[in-house]
Amino acid sequence: MFEFFNTLLIGITAGSIYSLMAIAIVLVWRSTRVVNFAAGGIALASTFVGTTILEITGSFWIALPIAMLAGAALSAFIEFFFLRPLLKRSGEKTQEIFLPIIATLGILGIIKSVLQFVYGDRIGVLTPPLSDRGFIVSGESIALSPLRLMILGIVLLLMIVLTLVFQRTNLGLSLRAASFSPEISRLSGIRVDLIRTLGWAISGAAGATAGILQTTNGSGSVSPEAFEFSLLLVFGFVAAVIGGIESLVGAVAGGLTLGVILAIILMYFGSSLVFFAAFVILILVLFLRPNGIVGVKGGRRA
């Protein structure tokens, strides 16, 4: 029972980070109908920015917001210079998603090789600001540590902020309107292009946070070919799809589901089944609900 409780805690922490990545992917999908594999590269690049700032200033709490800004800037840059012209060219045909996927894969590759060029074999070290030694409960150390608590706190805070922005502000209303119907939004005076870039920027900030937290939760160091980041991208995307790709709540639900189930499998069945389990979970969810946990049966088909 004790062990199971610990496994749950580990799963929730990992899952909350996947949720952030899933949110990054959902935001881009909602604003431009692009499956954004470059999100992994943006998270990686901004984590490197974070390690550099941490090296200079020595403070995690300065490094994190600057990394988020860097992620937002890079993400907006990619949208503005690559995806916007590409989508303008192809017209707003929604079913054509293969080419944007490939374009973002290409951008991911470019980001990774540029990072490799700049950093080479050096790795970025991200010392966590808090101890990762578990709290002691009735003489035994549990999996909840100050560091994990901090990770959960940051994720929770970001989700609250995002929810408030989306539900309570004009900006959030514009973001929702622009993704629901670009044409009508444009007619009612929303600058859809600007809003889309903003959607990408918020996604970049979420991805940057996911990258930083994934690194502190994991090995504490990052390299351009880090396995943790492929993991983050794949599981973030799977979580987004499980959640229904359209919904932020779904992304969180998907991320937590995936995190907890994978932690249980890792604990009781071993590591070689984890990836296959992710596939099975995805298939099962989509079999029961083809549009994800929170997905709405869309009127996309005529």
């Binding site: 799977v238 799809v241 790709i245 990836f275 596939f279 995805l282 549009n291």
Partner: peptide, 16 residues
Amino acid sequence: LSGPYLAGTTLAFAVG
């Protein structure tokens, strides 16, 4: 499945 759902499923298949 369509679009992103199919992309996600096949991606998970490739990894898993």
